[in-house]
Simulated assay, not measured.
Amino acid sequence: MEKTAKILRDNNAEIMKIWQNQVVQEVLASKESDSIALYNQLPDLINDIARLMIRYDKMEGFNKDEKYIEILKTSEEHGKQRSTKVYYTAEQIVHEYIIFHRTLSEFLISHNGYSEKVSDLLKYVIETSILKSVGSFSRSIQDMQEKLIGTLAHDIRNPLAAAQLSLEMMKQDKTGEWTNKTRIAAQRSVKKAINLIEGLMNGITVKSGEGMLLTFESSDLLKEMKFVHAESKEVYTREINLEYNAKKIIGIFDKTAVKRLVDNLIGNAIKYGSIDKPITISIEDEEDAVAIKVHNWGNPIPLSKQEQIFKFMGSAKRDKKPVSASWGMGLTLTQIVAEAHGGDINLVSDEKTGTTFTVNLIKQFNEVGKRRAKLTFVLDNI
């Protein structure tokens, strides 16, 4: 099969071009992907198949070869990548491989490089690749779903704990002096928990490349941030300051998601920051955007972990300090919400300046209405 292997190696780019043209015509989800995404893993697959053909004239034993194992890993990576692309399904991944098989076969036939042995090897390798790719795709979707639901479930604890605390205070208020105030606080916390539960239900229907369902409307973001600040001061005993440079910040936002975003950053600052120094929330109004910053003093996040901290399926922990939950939980939400508003999130953390998370949101990036956030970053630890 050395002749066939040479045909594959020498014509890799041409074969991929034929495959891509066919995929664009037949696989609907591919129309939402750029050419780089379409190419991703398959050129390596062609080269690995060619190497197998050189090493094995018969089918016996090749399934333990390191190149065959690499093919399986490549296929798993292909499925994982597809899980981050909107509209892909397991059926469409299978369709991609069917087109790949057909493209290889027709090309080799036209170049006199096809035989029964070649047919058997291609069929075995590609069928196994389909199993690995679809399995990886399904696990990735499940992991995305679990991560989003886990984030929401984690966030529900705070308002429920606050409501429980308010109810306990009402029971202990013999004079009735604080009853009305604690009742209002409990109602607000329960309402917040109900909103999060609705988000939890929406998270159950996650599809490839999609995150949570967001509701965009015109609102004054500064008003919402003042609410978050006031609520945080009620929940936490630490000093929390709010700074801003405008009277109003009007734009199209999912105000509930942005409030949850800031809640998570404040929670991280409380958990990891210095207990004897204040936490500062800063809202900076710019012409077309708004920057939300949450700063705390204390042990900085090690530079080696700062790049890993935003990875969707990863986690990072502070050195010399035990933590009860990974940074990744809240920062998953933060990144999804920031990117859904056309923005981003970045981190500066060192001993001299402390730790600052900055979230940038574009005011008019979205239109009013509901839509699901897209996952534009690659999954890890699948």
Rank of each mutant, 00 (worst) to 15 (best):
I275R: 10
K58F: 04
G209T: 03
R238E: 15
I7V: 05
L8R: 04
L8V: 00
S304A: 11
G330N: 10
V262K: 12
E210D: 04
S110I: 00
L200H: 13
I126N: 07
G369V: 02
L331P: 14
A50S: 06
I194D: 08
R157S: 15
E14T: 02
D285R: 15
D344H: 14
G61R: 13
S219M: 06
A163K: 08
V235N: 10
T182R: 11
E14Q: 06
N381Q: 13
M170G: 11
T205R: 12
E286G: 14
N63E: 11
I281G: 14
R372T: 03
V294T: 09
A153C: 06
K248T: 03
K64Y: 09
I156Y: 14
T215K: 14
Y272I: 02
F253S: 00
I309Y: 05
T376I: 01
T256P: 08
R372C: 04
I46D: 08
L379E: 15
R188P: 07
L148H: 10
A37Y: 03
G199M: 06
D263Q: 05
N366Y: 08
L379I: 06
V368K: 10
D319I: 01
I36Y: 15
Y56L: 03
S315V: 08
K370F: 00
Y124P: 07
I275Q: 14
I382A: 09
E106L: 02
I309E: 04
N366L: 00
M170C: 13
L242C: 05
S119Y: 10
T128E: 14
R371V: 01
S110D: 13
E351R: 09
K192D: 03
I301Y: 07
E284T: 07
Q145Y: 02
D10A: 10
G79W: 00
G251N: 07
L221D: 03
N264M: 06
T332K: 09
E284F: 01
L331I: 05
E287L: 00
Y68A: 15
R139C: 09
N112W: 03
I99L: 12
E351M: 09
K58D: 12
K132M: 01
N299P: 08
A289D: 08
S83H: 03
I93G: 09
V206Q: 04
F365H: 12
